[in-house]
Simulated scan of single mutants.
Amino acid sequence: MAAEIKICGVTTPDALDATMSAGAHYVGFVFYPPSPRHLSAPLASDLARRSGDRIRRIGLFVGAGDALLSEAVPAGQLDGIQLHGSEPPARVAEVRARFGLPVWKALPVASSSDIAAAKAYDGAADLVLFDARTPKGALPGGMGLAFDWGLLANWRGRTPWGLAGGLTPANVAEAVRRTDAPLVDTSSGVESAPGVKDVDRIAAFCKAARQ
């Protein structure tokens, strides 16, 4: 079965239209001010109205409190919440219970112990997203870094999972072939500059991910 596709960090109508036209399953809205892909609630609302029921919308948050979540979830008409900070399993379960939406937990990976740590989220998260660990002080994602996909051979958790980190139109087909990832997620891999989505790269990524 082909991997599902998420294009994260979409901020413009053109990028949203390209994401939908290319057949992606999910679009990611980033609610994290330090990111070049950050969306305000009003802009998220505009993009949500534009997309309607044509694609599922996932909001990305980093260490967010309930106040931000309570503003962003209805503004973006979110279908799911992605927690990309250091949220423990208890916080993930709390967010899922409070907002009644599926919650994805992004986990930074640099070693096999990082893969094993994902088991702690069984029963708390609806999906774990394995992403590359970024340098200390850098943004937690969207840096174009990849990790050793071979580490995923040790994954034995019960929670559905996805693959992120350094995925591009040039390597996503190999990534799916090597890992059998049921979902792939890209952000910087389809950009011409940080936060600037390239519509041709979005199309190429989606095409390659399905091959």
Rank of each mutant, 00 (worst) to 15 (best):
M1H: 14
K6L: 06
V10A: 01
V10M: 06
P13T: 01
P13S: 03
L16M: 12
D17W: 12
T19P: 06
T19S: 09
M20C: 15
A24S: 11
G28Q: 02
F29M: 10
Y32P: 04
P34L: 01
P36Q: 09
R37Y: 01
A41H: 12
P42V: 02
P42Y: 01
S45F: 00
A48P: 07
R49N: 15
S51K: 09
S51P: 04
R54W: 11
I58S: 01
F61R: 00
G65T: 09
D66G: 03
D66H: 13
L68T: 14
L69V: 14
L69K: 08
L69C: 12
E71H: 07
E71F: 05
A75P: 05
Q77W: 12
L78N: 08
L78K: 07
L78W: 01
D79C: 07
D79T: 10
I81K: 06
Q82E: 06
L83M: 08
G85E: 05
E87W: 05
V92R: 04
R96W: 07
R98W: 08
F99P: 06
G100I: 05
W104E: 09
V109M: 06
S111A: 14
S112L: 14
A117M: 08
A118G: 06
A120V: 01
Y121M: 04
Y121F: 15
D122V: 03
A124S: 12
D126H: 03
D126N: 12
L129R: 01
D131V: 02
P135I: 06
K136C: 14
G137K: 08
P140E: 05
G142E: 01
M143F: 10
G144Y: 04
G150M: 12
G150E: 13
L152E: 08
A153R: 15
A153S: 15
R158Y: 12
P160K: 09
G162Y: 11
L163R: 10
G166C: 08
G166E: 11
P169W: 10
V172L: 11
V176D: 05
R177Q: 14
D180R: 15
A181S: 13
P182W: 05
P182R: 04
L183I: 11
V184N: 05
T186K: 00
S187D: 08
S192V: 02
A193M: 12
K197Q: 02
V199Q: 09
V199N: 03
A203W: 03
A204D: 11
F205C: 08
K207P: 04
A209Q: 09
